[in-house]
C-alpha cells in the first residue's frame, strides 16, 4: 500500500513536467499543442539511445531538453511563419515525430539493468544511497520538479515571462508593445516542448525503456491535469498555476493507480484516460470549447 502511494507520487512528479508544458501552451498561450504526443517519446527515445551507448545519465536531461525545444520550434515555425492553424501545426509535428522516434529508438528499446540512470548514478548514490530505489526515485523526481517549478515561477515574473503571459491573454497588446507576437508564441512552444521531452527522458530513466507508442494520450493527460489543477484552485489565487498542475498530475496518477488496483486490465488504460478527461471537462464546466475555439 505504502509502496503504491510512493510510486504514484513519483509518477505524479515526473509526469507533472508534461503538465507544466501543457500549462504553458494551453493555459498561458491559449495554444492547443498536440506536439506533446510526439515530443514526449522523442525525449525518451533520445535518452534510451544515449544511455545504451554509455552516455552520462545527467547529460541525457540536457539533450532531451534540447531536442524537445527543437520540436517546439518546428511547430512554432509551422504555425507562425507558414500560417498553419495551431491545432494542425501540432498534428503535423506530432505525426512527423512518430517516424523520427522510430528511427531513433526503434519500436522498443530496453535500457539494460547494469546501465546507470539518474536514480542510481553519482552523486545521487552518495547522497541518498542508503534508501531503497523506490524512495530514491521519489526524492530525485521531487527535487527535479521543485527545481523546474521554481525556475518557471521566476521566469513568469521576468519581462520576457510577462510578455509571454500577455501574448496568450491579448495578442494586440503585444503588438502594441512593438513586439512580434509570433516570436513569443514560438518561445512558449519551445519551452513547453523542452519540458515535455524532459518528462519523456525521466520516464525512460525510471522505467528503463522506450516504446514508440508511449506518447499516445500524453497531451490528454496534460490537459486533464492542467484543468483539474486550475479548477480546484480557481478560488485560491495564492496557489500558483505551477503548483496547481503538479497537484493535478498527482491526483490524475492516483486515479489511474486506483483503477489498476481495482483490477482494470492495463490494455484499457487509454480508454480510462480518455473517460477521465471527459469527466474532468464536464465537472469543471469547460466542456472543451476553449480547446476547440483556438
Amino acid at each position: 500500500m505504502l509502496d503504491s502511494i510512493i510510486s504514484t507520487l513519483t509518477q505524479g512528479f515526473i509526469y507533472a513536467l508534461i503538465s507544466f508544458g501543457v500549462y504553458i501552451t494551453y493555459s498561458i498561450l491559449d495554444f492547443p499543442d498536440l506536439t506533446t504526443d510526439g515530443s514526449f517519446p522523442l525525449g525518451a527515445a533520445v535518452t534510451a539511445v544515449l544511455l545504451t551507448n554509455g552516455c552520462n545519465p545527467y547529460l541525457t536531461l540536457l539533450v532531451a531538453i534540447a531536442v524537445g525545444a527543437l520540436a517546439g520550434l518546428i511547430t512554432g515555425l509551422i504555425h507562425v511563419k507558414l500560417h498553419v492553424r495551431d491545432l494542425l501545426a501540432g498534428i503535423i509535428t506530432m505525426t512527423a515525430l512518430f517516424s523520427i522516434n522510430l528511427q531513433i529508438g526503434g519500436s522498443n528499446l530496453v535500457v539494460e539493468r547494469a546501465t546507470a540512470t539518474i536514480f542510481n548514478a553519482e552523486p545521487i548514490m552518495t547522497l541518498f544511497g542508503g534508501m531503497s530505489l523506490l524512495y530514491r526515485k521519489l526524492i530525485v523526481s521531487f527535487i527535479l520538479i521543485v527545481v523546474v517549478k521554481i525556475i518557471l515561477d521566476l521566469y513568469f515574473k521576468t519581462k520576457s515571462g510577462l510578455l509571454l503571459r500577455a501574448v496568450g491573454d491579448n495578442q494586440t497588446l503585444v503588438t502594441a508593445l512593438a513586439k512580434d507576437k509570433g516570436n513569443m508564441k514560438i518561445l512558449g512552444l519551445v519551452i513547453a516542448n523542452a519540458l515535455v521531452a524532459l518528462a519523456g527522458c525521466i520516464v525512460c530513466h525510471e522505467q528503463r525503456s522506450f516504446s514508440a507508442t508511449m506518447g499516445t494520450g500524453q497531451v490528454v493527460f496534460g490537459l486533464a491535469t492542467v484543468i483539474i489543477g486550475i479548477t480546484l484552485f480557481r478560488r485560491m489565487s495564492f496557489v500558483k498555476g505551477t503548483t496547481a498542475v503538479v497537484i493535478g498530475s498527482i491526483l490524475y496518477k492516483a486515479c489511474i493507480t486506483v483503477a489498476l488496483a481495482a483490477g482494470l486490465p492495463a490494455n484499457l488504460l487509454k480508454l480510462i484516460t480518455a473517460l477521465l478527461f471527459l469527466l474532468v471537462l464536464v465537472l469543471s464546466g469547460r466542456k472543451g470549447e476553449e480547446i476547440i475555439h483556438a
Partner: peptide, 19 residues
C-alpha cells in the same frame, strides 16, 4: 504587471525582473 509591460516598451524584454 500591465503598467510595467507598457513602461518597458522600446526596451528589451529579457530575463530581468518584470516589475
Amino acid at each position: 504587471e500591465n503598467l510595467s509591460l507598457a513602461d518597458n516598451k522600446g526596451k528589451s524584454f529579457g530575463l530581468r525582473f518584470g516589475i
